[in-house]
Each structure stands twice: as C-alpha cells, then as structure tokens.
Nucleic acid binder design. Sequence first.
DNA 1: GCGGACTGCTTACCT
DNA 2: ACAGGTAAGCAGTCCGCG
Length: 835
Amino acid sequence: MDLPPSLLVSAGYDAGSGSAVLKFYDPESGGILSWEDRTGHRPYCYSRLEPADLSEIAARGDVAGIDRVGVTDPLTGREITVSRITGSNPLAIGGRDDSIRNRIETWESDIKYYEGYMYDRRLVVGRYYKSDGGDLVPADPGVPDEVRLELKAMLLDRVDGTGMPDQKQYREYISGWADLLSQPIPRIRRLAVDIEVEATEGKIPDPSSADRIITAVGLKGDGCDRVLVLETGAERGEDKLGDEAKTAFFKEEREMLEEAFRTMSEYPFILTYNGDEFDLPYMRHRAERLGVREEANPLRVLNTSATVKGGIHIDLYRTLSNRSFQIYAFGQAYTDFALESVSQALLGRGKTDYGVPLGELTLSQTAKYCYNDALLTYDLTAFDSDLLMDLLVTISRIGRMPIDDISRMGVSQWIRSLLYYEHRRSGYLIPRREELEARSQGVKSDAVIKDKKYRGGLVVDPVEGVHFGVVVMDFASLYPSIIKVRNISYETVRCPHEACKKNAIPQTNHWSCSERNGMTSQIIGSLRDLRVNYYKSLSRRQSLPEQQRRQYKTVSQALKVILNASYGVMGADIFPLYFLPAAEATTAIGRHTILETIRGCGEDGIEVLYGDTDSIFVKDPTEEQMGRLIERAKRDHGVDLEVDKRYRYCVLSGRKKNYFGVTDAGKVDVKGLTGKKSHTPRTIKDLFYELVDVLASVENEDGFRRAKRQISERIAAWAGRLQDGRIPLGDLAFNVMLSKAPREYTKTIPQHIRAARMMKDHDNLGRGDRVSFVKTLNKSGVKPLSMASIGDVDATKYLEFAESVIEQVISPLGIEFDEAVGKPKQAGLEEYFYG
DNA sequence: GCGGACTGCTTACCT
DNA sequence: ACAGGTAAGCAGTCCGCG
C-alpha cells in the first residue's frame, strides 16, 4: 500500500486482523489514511523466571513463544537476562481474569498494545512518514537548511549540561528534540458537531436510551456552515436564520441523522463539546432506534469515549477541563468548564441567549442556537491561529502519544508514555511499583501540612505595606532546572553506589548519582534548556517568518505545560514511576536555593520584601546588585535567576499569597485577594476592581491622598445602594463550585450545600457545577438565587463580607472601611510610607 | 445554656 | 486523578462558668 507523506496522528488495535493500526493525516487530501502493521509484531511482557519455570505459561494457547533476552535494569545499571513472553493477542498479556499478568509476576504488561508497538518501532506521533509500497519510512519535511544551521550553532553554544555525568549523551537529547519540535505542523481539517434534543422536564436527556427527538444538528467545519433542522409540524422558520449558516429542513429525523453522518465521514477530525458523554452516544443510539443501518452509522461508543469510524474525535470539554491546559496553556482564563464560561474567556463571546428556557425556542431560534454552539466549539480550536490544535500536535510529539489520547488523558499519562518510550529506546526494563517502593524506604516525612507526603516550596513572610520600586526576580523553570542540575530521576536518587552518597541533598537523607545520567533528568533537563534558551527567544526573533515564530511560540507553550507537570508526577502515587525521594529532593533543593539567594541579598544590602517558592520581591535594587545576585545563583546553584517584572508600587497585605502590584506600564496584578475569587458576588467584585483601578492610577505618594478620598466616596455610595435594596439580586449571589453531588456532603453541611438542597432539582447537580445562593435573613441564613427575593437579603452580612474583601487592599494604605461607610476614624498615611 | 477557643471541612487561590 | 502552601468562612465540638 502506498502512503503519501503524512503525519502520524493516532493508533489502535484491530481485533479482526490482530494487528496494530496506525492513522495518518494526509495534509494534501485532508483525509485520514489507515495503515495496518505487516511486520508481524506481537504483544509481549517480561518475566524474571527461567523458561523452565514458565512451562505452564508456555503451554497456553494464546502464548506464541518465550525467549531469553538481555535488558538493562535501570535501578542497578546492570545487564540482566529475562524471559520475554510473546502473546498471540493483547488479551493474553492483560485485560482478562486469566491474562498472564494476573497469573505470574510480570514487567511491562500495563502498556497498551498499540503504544508498545509504536515505541518498539520508534514511530513518533506528529512525525511524517511515507511508503512506496514497502515499509514506512520517515518523511519529515525538515526545517530550511539555513535556519537549521543557525539553530544548531546557537544550540551548541548555549546548552550546558551542568550536572550530567555524560555530556555527550545529553547533547544528543537536545538535538533530537529540536529536530522533532521544529518540524512544520500542517493545518488540520476539522468539523465541529453539536446536537439539540427535545426538552425534558428538569432533567438532561439520557444518551443511552435516546428516547427524545433530536431537533437540530449544527455543523461547523472547514468549508461547512450548516444546521440541519427537524420540522416539528406547525411552524417552520418564519424568521430567517441569517447568513452565517445554511439551514436544511428535514421531515424525517432519520434522514437528518444520515445526512449528518455523511458530512461527518468526510472529515478527518471531529470536534465536540462533551461529545464523549452526550452528543455522539446520543446520535449513535438515536440512529439505532430509528433503524439506521449499522454500515451507515459511523459512531462507536466505548467505555470512556466515543469515536467516529475512520476519523479522530476530540472532545474539547475533556481537553479544556485538563488542569494543565487550563492553567499553563490558557493562564487560568476560565474557572469552570461549561462551554459558556470557556468560550467567554477564550473567545470573548458565548452561547446565544434568548432569555427563555431552551424548550420554548422557536424552530429558527433552536437552529441558530445549535449552529452557534458548533461554531463556538470550532472556534475554540481556531482562535489565535489554531493554537489549540497546534498544542495538541506538539504535546503528542513530546508524549509520543496519539492525539486523541492526549486530548483525553491527564499529564501523568502523557509523561508515562514519554518515559516508557525512552525506556524501550534505551533497552531499560521498566521497573514495577514495588521495586520503586522498596527503594523509597528511609524517607522521613516532614510535611508542613498534615495529610501531605512531603515538604514543598518556601514562602517568605511579606513585609506589610506599600512599597515603591519593587523588582520581582524569579528562577527560570526552577524545578526542571534542579532536576537537570542535580541529576534527579528515580534511578539516580538513592543510587546503589557508595561513592555517590557524598552528593547529599540538603535537608533530606537522600543523595544523587554522579556516575550515570538519570533518564528523567535528561528528558526534563533538555526540554527545559530548549524552552529557556531556544524556543522562547526564537519566538521573538523578528528575522524569522511570522509562521515560524508562531510555531516556536506554540512549542514554548507546550513545553511549559509538560515542564510544569514533570515534577508533580514524581510525587503523585497514580504515576507508575512514582518516586517520593525524587519529588522530595527537588523541593528541598528549591528551598535551599531560594534561602541561599535571600542570604545573598542580605550580604549585599538588598531588602527582600516577599518570596514564594521560586521568586523574590526586592526593594529598589541597583543593576549591579541584581547582576551579582544572578551571577551567584548561576555559580552556586546552576540556575537562571531573571528579572520577571517591575512594580511601580506593590501593596503587600501582610498575608502570604495575597498582594497587588502596579507595573511600570500601569498594569495591575491582583494575587490571591478575595475580591478576585470566582465565588465572590458580582457586586463586591465590581466594587473591588473599581477601587483597584483608582489605586492603579496613583503615580506617587501625593496621589494616594486623592485616591483615599475617592475610595471612601465609592465605598459609601455602594453601601447606600446596598441598604436601599438597589443592587440586583443576581449581583449579590455567591457562586460556589461543587466537588461532589450535594447528597455526598456528610461531614459538614456548608452554606452552598444547604442552599443547593433547597432546590427542587438538586439531584441533577454534581461535581463541577456551580451553586448560586444569596445570604438571607431566614433561619438557615441562605437561599438559592432562584428562590430568593430582594427583601430576603441580609444586608449586614454583605456589608461584613465587603469589608473583609476591601480591607485587604485599603488597610495597608491606612484607609478604614468603617470610616468610609460613616463611622469616622482617622489614620494617617505617613506611617505606612515611612513606618 | 451560651459564648469563646479550637479543630476540621470546604473552596479557591499561588507557585 | 501532577505537587505542596496559604487564606478565609463556616460547621461542629469542647470547655468553662458558682
């Protein structure tokens, strides 16, 4: 079979043919091409038993053979001989009660077959391959020569393998990654799908029974703007749908679905918002119910996902609920994962609102609403020049994992895949959990917080008050730097070499190896170096074409996501290579590094106002002082200390993780203050930000005098509106997220749960939903927003809450809330500036 | 029987 | 289902108080 140069995007196992199947995306045709393995590769796992002790296993019908093979045991670094048990199908290894891994002690039996297949053949998702009838051959288009040479020179110049016993090996990692991550990313053709289902009183339609009519299917794709609508009888879109999409009316629901399936089959990538749980299973089961033939139904519903035959389904709800995307790729722009919140935050627009329940929409309103949802879904992957699609491709490349798996799984799975690939490539036997546990013996737990396993970052007590000319300095990727410089990995921390015990990790009883490069250390270290020294600056280099710069920026963002997660997984017990000493060593060195840096400040006469984990806030330092500090950090700890930002002034509230600062450019950073929190009622947030804006315009100390007056006036005006009942009820609601269903709260009943339980349909509420409630004068003190009226409001409670929110910003300035609402009390500003 | 001190639960944030 | 550190509000409990 011929394969034009195509991008490897996904993989699976075909039980019919009994082989791995790869999925390639052909950028030319914009289609998916399937490629079935013909090398005869089979699933396998390892055992430490001799073949003589495996006769029972060898006799199984689903075992194809047992060989003796040599591998390296990473825990000791020694070559060992083990038995490789080859199965005739993946279920022989694992997945059934009588699978081999449930019979004897095995190694590497938790790898999905198609993953192991790709690792063994060194096939990397996101690379290009082709075939002229024979086997697959790499077909990376590569980067232009002149760019490549320039990059290489820069690379070799700026990489430093401090801490790596084997420098040459480390450099190979760097150039390997640079080559992979600089390959062009093709534009990916795709279609977003959304359905509307006839309303059911107070509950969500059930996709497994699919007993309600599908009223509309919205389709937004490259070259497709359509909405398919079922004519329900009486009315037909009397008001026109508008120009943005073509409406097609259907008399038969079944024909409408078949038309939707035809369109979906033309696209390589299908996008949905919660399509795993709702849209695709609903469509599949509804079609079955209406008698659509199996061959005409391209949808497949699996345990935890749904797919489209011959294509790849990405459920953006799952992708965007991944905390790594939420926090590191999109900077916490959204705090809950409903399509409305996410699209408001990322696109600046949301769902269509007709102000009536969905069930009361006219036909054409339903159509518009439905198309708009599909459009939002599509645009979530299109905004910022396809940022999300490109991130998915890039993270697939790094994790060596199918794009659809990347879009559904958490970082621990990504990093697991990345490390497993590396083990196979290096001939390392992947250790079992018990082996790592045995090596962790002797860990002393000195966590600060009970229920935590070990101690984390250091937070410096802030100097309360207003500070002018504050410079915030931070260490670039502190934990990944430490992992690299101190050679931190499960096989290098507490290594078996007596001589290495001299490499003690401060504040712990651990040490790290100076004989071998740690695998995690090399991977994380090289990715860190590439981000900090390479992609970050390339993305800003004006001499490169726009398209190139943009990709480098995406790569930099993807690396940030991976790097931020890399340390955390070592301390997460769901991670298969979980190793507490490595996590503990990393934070211990982090605390040591920041403490030493603060000590350096003291010796050089620099005042440190605050610091958290990897940052220090310093008071008006000279360039020379900063230079010395930076040099010292590099020399003593091998880490890069940088100037992060400069605050014209900064207000430290006296509490850790609670401050605000105004940058030289006049931008305001608010950190941790209650006024910023998502559950705070709208009206109090508005007041808070109003006051922050007043403060942001302050240029000097005299400005504070004027600001103080304005602040007092605004607080008084707000309090007046509250007392007169002129604040709309909705703006008074607290919005608190549930971490579980209301009935599951048993230890205590918090206010939001008490309110939730008053609602008729609270059974529909669950994890991730928000409860809106108002503080009221009735006995329980709360009412759900939907059941409260303006007369119920407990104004005193709101005044108290507002006071505590506002006090966090104004009290460091010497302003009192009470004073503003009418109770006079004098406080001079001077003492805060010169106190 | 009541209020203050205290602990624990819960949520939302920071790095 | 990546980590630990911190703030805040409230729920619930204990203890003292002639």
